[in-house]
Design a protein around this nucleic acid. Structure first.
Lengths: 418, 418
DNA sequence: CGCCTTATTTCATGACGTGATTTAACTTCC
DNA sequence: GGAAGTTAAATCACGTCATGAAATAAGGCG
């Protein structure tokens, strides 16, 4: 349900395209006057006038008061109509499902959370959690389901787009799960959902969130590198997410960085993930650490590395983390050499923990392992969005569709002609 | 001079785009009747009629006799007019410069070769060689310079596109060489050229040749992996060459596959190139081999590995080459995981030598180091074009421009209206 | 209150793609 | 050999579009 290339060739498609560039310009730079839109899009003022008249008529955008006036007629500002429709983002994480309902400008209207057993990613449980979450956020926000443009779902693992989305989670036992069909069919006594679904890999949706609202704003070519328990990436090419031929692109964690090295949970040896994934880091340290989960254990390790010389384990912790920075830098260098991005954005909970103090070391390692010219053109930064970015990014998927010219969604918007 | 994005927004741009899709369809499937073109492009028969009338008037395409007829009016076949213009491809290699002049359908009309001192890539020598070559192929083919659409030049090293192309050859001492400006200015007593220039990395031009005419035909997402003395790649995304933000994308050889491993000529350690580049292979074998150059030495090594057990050095040769296949497979697996291409095409002289007998081993290593789902959707094959592919691919650059709708080039083509 | 300045809309024009309709160019059958 | 049949291509009339020019709107300034 996510893709559906439209024809480009008739004079009508042209209008749709122009509508689309205008909407994108407005979405990311609002509010804007018609005149500014004309400059931003390259469209003539006359065309901007025509297109905006339509869009206002459909309720997609609205006027937002006039401003300024150095002698002439004041500019009338335009902005998206945040209530033209709503979108829902779902983050299927390793420990919980999070569902959030946003308006068009991504202001949160309602949220819902469901814990998951981290050792048993039961498909039924996930489907049930999502469906329950959808009902909850709709009820909690008072939004009519008919006004929901779509539901974006970020899942761990590879998502194979096709007639219906299939989810492959090689590292935790999901094999070609027809999540879309299951959500349509419903679980137990809970009915399936008729809402448009957009299922994608969680790293990709998170990357899109950073691209739209975080450290990636405005980038044409970038890579969002995510380090958590697993390691993944979202490749941005030409300003949008690159998916490859079966939409599994971005599986960066299983790049071989040490032939014949540590065994990875994917079964191969020497994967980047086996060295810089949280589990790999903790395992390389090898001694007990306080904390129940990986997150607190890694935090403890980092804390330990910051202690003064002589503290038991501090040296070893430093060595492990220094090595981690080297491995990660080498991995990032590979991305720089191969993809020549203008920006590398490091994120994921482990990546952020690590980046706080090791970012310079990571940058230096990346420099050493990359070619001068591409490295010089790349900045390496940290993600700027919090842990809700996966759901946020997932929710941008239906918004993207709207901006690209979907004939205004399920929303019951008034339409006037002439 | 190579890039110049054109506006898309007016009804005229629409025509240019439709012209373009029609030309692409015809170029790769000619001859085609108008009716078939309509099906291939999705344009209405009426539009095909209109567009082809223009194109025939401009001399870009021509009718090529009617064929068939099971009862009705016979289809009139259309094809490119191979003489509507000519293109020149230049291959600046490590040991020679090769210049070739083609017609629009890439039939060779003239060639010229100039040896280079492999240990001294003097810029002046290269500029002089190219300019001499241009004059030679023009004279040799009898083609008027005014009918040349452009000159594509494939160079080793990173090409930075900008106001004028700069060439960076980190591994052999070219640092931001303004090749374009030098070719305009001329060398010694040879005048500069006024022809449109398209300078690009040789691996990319070779990749484009394979994409258009070799093992990559029809691929939307592919990687052409080139292994010679150096190791590079050409990334195909959405059916065309991916260049990244400063057009250096595809530098695959300096991906780290063994942190802390062998030192590479780029200065870093553990690069793929240090293991699977010809020099790396020979060095890892470490014993003397017959042959004056790397090419014959590698051939000798491969031959040795094929000898029966007990032959002096055969075991060691096999071990080195088996390892090479493993390294290369791991590197290819990284491409598969990260980019999810539908095809990996292995080429370069060393890659082809190796691929002849080790392709199954390389495939197996790639399988072991990649994730199931993306690996299953990727085929790994060998390049199909010969050593002239760099020049051929370079020459496709101006053709690409023509197909994309450049208003018929420098060619003095007749134009008729009505 | 009239003039100036700037933003937006309206208008007339020229292009374009397309479905329907003609015309063109063969084959086949009587 | 001529009429009917069949398929390909061209033409036509129409609706849509973007646009420059001109008109209109909306405020400031003297």
């Amino acid at each position: 349900m996510a893709s559906m290339e439209r024809r480009r060739g008739t004079v009508r498609d042209l209008r749709r395209d122009n509508r689309s560039v205008l909407l994108w310009a407005l979405y990311f730079n609002q509010p804007l006057s018609r005149q500014e839109l004309s400059r931003a899009t390259g469209l003539s003022p006359a065309s901007v006038s025509n297109v905006t008249r339509d869009l206002i008529g459909e309720g997609v955008i609205e006027e937002a008061g006039s401003v300024d006036s150095d002698g002439g007629r004041p500019r009338v500002l335009l902005r998206m109509n945040p209530d033209h429709g709503y979108v829902i983002g779902v983050d299927v994480g390793e420990t919980r499902i999070r569902v959030e309902l946003f308006d068009l400008m991504m202001a949160v209207r309602a949220t819902a959370d469901y814990p998951l057993n981290p050792h048993d990613h039961g498909v039924g449980e996930v489907v049930d959690g999502i469906l329950t979450g959808l009902a909850t956020v709709l009820a909690g926000s008072g939004v009519d389901a008919a006004d929901v443009l779509g539901v974006g779902i970020g899942v761990p693992g590879v998502v194979e787009q096709g007639a219906e989305a299939l989810v492959h989670g090689q590292t935790y036992g999901w094999d070609a799960v027809p999540l879309e069909r299951l959500l349509r069919a419903g679980a137990d006594r809970r009915a399936g959902t008729p809402l448009p679904l957009y299922i994608d890999n969680g790293a990709k949706t998170m990357g899109q969130a950073e691209l739209w609202f975080g450290a990636g704003r405005g980038a044409q070519n970038a890579v969002i590198a995510l380090v958590g328990s697993g390691v993944g990436a979202s490749i941005i090419s030409g300003g949008s997410t690159y998916r490859g031929s079966t939409s599994s692109a971005g599986e960066w964690g299983h790049t071989t960085i040490m032939v014949g090295g540590r065994t990875c949970r994917c079964g191969a040896s020497g994967c980047l993930e086996a060295y810089v994934g949280a589990e790999g880091i903790l395992d390389r340290y090898g001694r007990p650490l306080p904390g129940d989960d990986q997150e607190s254990a890694l935090a403890a390790l980092i804390d330990l590395a910051g202690r003064e010389q002589g503290t038991h384990g501090a040296e070893a912790a430093r060595a492990v983390l220094d090595d981690t920075a080297r491995y990660l830098g080498a991995g990032i260098a590979g991305l720089i050499n191969l993809l020549n991005p203008e920006r590398i954005i490091l994120g994921g909970w482990a990546g952020l923990l690590l980046g706080e103090r090791w970012l310079p070391a990571i940058r230096e390692a990346a420099r050493l392992h990359s070619l001068r010219q591409p490295f010089a053109g790349t900045s390496i930064e940290l993600c700027r969005l919090g842990p809700d970015a996966v759901a946020l990014g997932a929710a941008t998927l239906p918004v993207e569709r709207l901006l690209n010219g979907a004939v205004s969604g399920a929303a019951g918007s008034s339409r006037s002609a002439g």
